[in-house]
């Protein structure tokens, strides 16, 4: 008999309400899902549907209003990562969870060389041999197709596509358990988009990384994800296997979304 697979991440009733004065803006409400090891989960929805908020909460850029997220490696999955103190949160980011932002400038330190950006994560994990760090950094930059002669240049002078590839290399260095990718191709032109998507797919196939990909682009979702959540107005309206959702959408909003692309 096969042991049932334990989820890597369990998110329960995640809710985020932004308040400003007397106004309350609901970003997402009661979002629950599981992510299994080696799986790529997609979150799709129009802008303002709360999909990025879910990622930002998981990366702890913003504090959720309520809800829990249990990571298998954090206190054996017994405590929510939202209870982490500052030091634990830093450890989580250094070892377990990494983020690729839509805007590479959010995820990169532009005052530091491309190699240094990748090295930063290794240094945070207490690597103390320059040659090892350089080998590892160049390995990842090579994998993300950043030319090695640009390794010691500043990413501020790179094209958007190359910045995004450096950011992906940075996120993958030090082998995180979970990679969060937020609209990673939105700012790029179509041919560069294809290259970055190929890259992520190849890395996923070779490393078996677990990832959550947020996108409004159904093409990205179809290409990269195993399962998908559809969000509208802060709620999950439908979820299931990607093929199933895209071929046989049940919720009217999902039907509309799928029709928009195929029409």
């Amino acid at each position: 008999m096969v042991e049932p697979l334990e989820p890597l991440l369990r998110v329960r009733n995640l809710t985020k309400v932004y308040t400003s004065g007397n106004r309350r803006v609901l970003a997402c409400e009661d979002v629950s899902f599981d992510v299994y090891p080696g799986e790529v989960l997609g979150i799709v929805g129009e802008s303002g549907s709360g999909k990025s908020t879910v990622l930002q909460c998981l990366y702890q850029d913003v504090a959720p209003t309520s809800g829990q997220a249990f990571l298998a490696s954090y206190h054996n999955g017994e405590h929510s990562i939202f209870e982490a103190d500052r030091r634990e949160r830093r450890e989580l980011r250094a070892h377990q969870i990494s983020m690729v932002y839509q805007n590479p400038r959010m995820g990169l330190n532009l005052m530091v060389t491309a190699g240094g950006n990748v090295a930063g994560r290794l240094l945070a994990a207490d690597w103390r041999r320059v040659s090892d760090i350089r080998d590892k950094a160049s390995d990842y930059l090579q994998r993300t197709e950043v030319p090695l002669d640009r390794m010691d240049d500043f990413p501020a002078f790179f094209s958007g596509g190359m910045q995004q590839r450096v950011q992906i290399a940075k996120a993958l260095a030090n082998g995180p358990e979970l990679v969060l990718l937020d609209e990673l191709t939105t700012g790029l032109d179509v041919s560069v988009q294809a290259g970055v998507l190929d890259l992520v797919r190849d890395i996923q196939h070779t490393t078996g990384m677990t990832a959550i990909i947020v996108s409004h682009d159904l093409g990205v979702i179809r290409l990269l994800t195993d399962r998908v959540l559809v969000m509208k107005d802060g709620h999950v309206v439908e979820s299931g296997l990607t093929d199933q959702i895209l071929e046989d959408p049940q919720h009217p909003y999902t039907q509309l979304l799928v029709n928009c692309v195929t029409a």
């Binding site: 030091r87 060389t113 103390r128």
Partner: peptide, 15 residues
């Protein structure tokens, strides 16, 4: 949390 300091030293050595 001294990763930033180590990164500065690393950048110095690389450059």
């Amino acid at each position: 949390d001294y990763a930033q300091m180590w990164l500065a030293l690393y950048e110095d050595i690389v450059r």
